[in-house]
């Protein structure tokens, strides 16, 4: 059976998202950030190309995060608030199809935006590479830059899944946004906390605190695994197996969140 309803909903979500003022604002901001990063890199004392790549990838990451946080919670909340969801759920489709369609549209929106910003970043890097007056211009790992952007997209997709999950039961978009932000902050730091706990410093930590921190490490997504920015800019080795495992981890986490969201949303009443 073709997922026609899901695709139709994803398409409408994508179109709706692209017409949102918040989306246009974020995209304009991202482009300005990229242009500014070129100017800042030009003024820097260090290697202009490394600074350009670093700032460019940061701009891509920042755009992905902003879009995931705001569009994820906003577009579902808008459906519930304006009650346009009634028109969709009254059709012979399950609540799971709604979650899948909405998530699909949001991922497409973020994916297309990140692809555009990445392309802009690569063009800017290429321009600086060609016009640089360095005696020994470093080799730019173009493939790793693209790979880093793909992993930024994976991270944004995971945050979108989090926002869909929280929107499936939160009574207000602000609450969903706050919960997503909280999980993001925890997810960004669990890896470091785990490393500290496994270091000699961790021996002095109380067992209860240690158990809590390790519990958080296993429950919350380890978002630092998806950050390849430094490796791409400094051309560090990226073992394919590690990349595949990381991607699989993110995809499994996303699927688990969407299944949970569906389960909760099936029980949600549309008052």
């Amino acid at each position: 059976m073709k997922p026609r309803a899901e695709i139709a909903l994803a398409w409408v979500t994508l179109k709706e998202g692209m017409r949102e003022r918040a989306f246009m604002g974020i995209m304009t901001f991202a482009l300005l950030l990229l242009i500014a990063s070129g100017v800042i890199a030009d003024l820097s004392i260090g290697n202009i190309l490394k600074v350009t790549q670093d700032l460019g990838l940061s701009a891509v990451s920042f755009t992905g995060l902003l879009l995931a946080f705001f569009m994820g919670t906003h577009l579902i909340a808008k459906d519930l608030d304006k009650r346009s969801i009634y028109m969709v759920l009254s059709k012979p489709m399950g609540r799971g199809s709604y979650i899948a369609g909405k998530y699909g549209g949001l991922v497409a929106l973020v994916g297309l935006s990140l692809a555009f910003i990445t392309l802009f970043m690569l063009v800017a890097t290429f321009y600086f590479y060609k016009t640089s007056r360095l005696y020994f211009p470093p080799q730019i790992a173009w493939g790793k830059l693209v790979l880093a952007s793909i992993f930024i997209f994976l991270e944004a997709s995971l945050i979108l899944a989090l926002s869909v999950f929280f929107s499936s039961f939160a009574s207000s978009p602000l609450l969903a946004l706050f919960l997503t932000l909280a999980v993001y902050l925890v997810g960004e730091s669990t890896h470091q906390v785990s490393e500290i706990l496994h270091s000699p410093l961790g021996q002095r930590t109380s067992p209860v605190l240690k158990a809590l921190a390790m519990g958080a490490f296993y429950i919350f997504p380890d978002l630092s695994l998806l950050d390849l920015k430094a490796a791409a800019v400094h051309n560090l080795p990226l073992p394919p197996l590690r990349l595949m495992k990381t991607a699989l981890y993110a995809i499994c986490y996303i699927l688990a969140l969407l299944i949970l969201a569906t389960f909760i949303f099936k029980k949600r009443e549309m008052k």
Partner: peptide
């Protein structure tokens, strides 16, 4: 719901769409 058509109170649409686009979207859901 294959047998049902529903008009909610004060219907709200994806209002960036045109009337035709909205009906086509509804058709695809069906």
């Amino acid at each position: 719901r294959e047998h049902l058509g529903y008009l909610p109170e004060n219907p709200s649409f994806y209002d960036h769409l045109t009337g035709e686009e909205f009906l086509l979207f509804t058709g695809r859901l069906l």
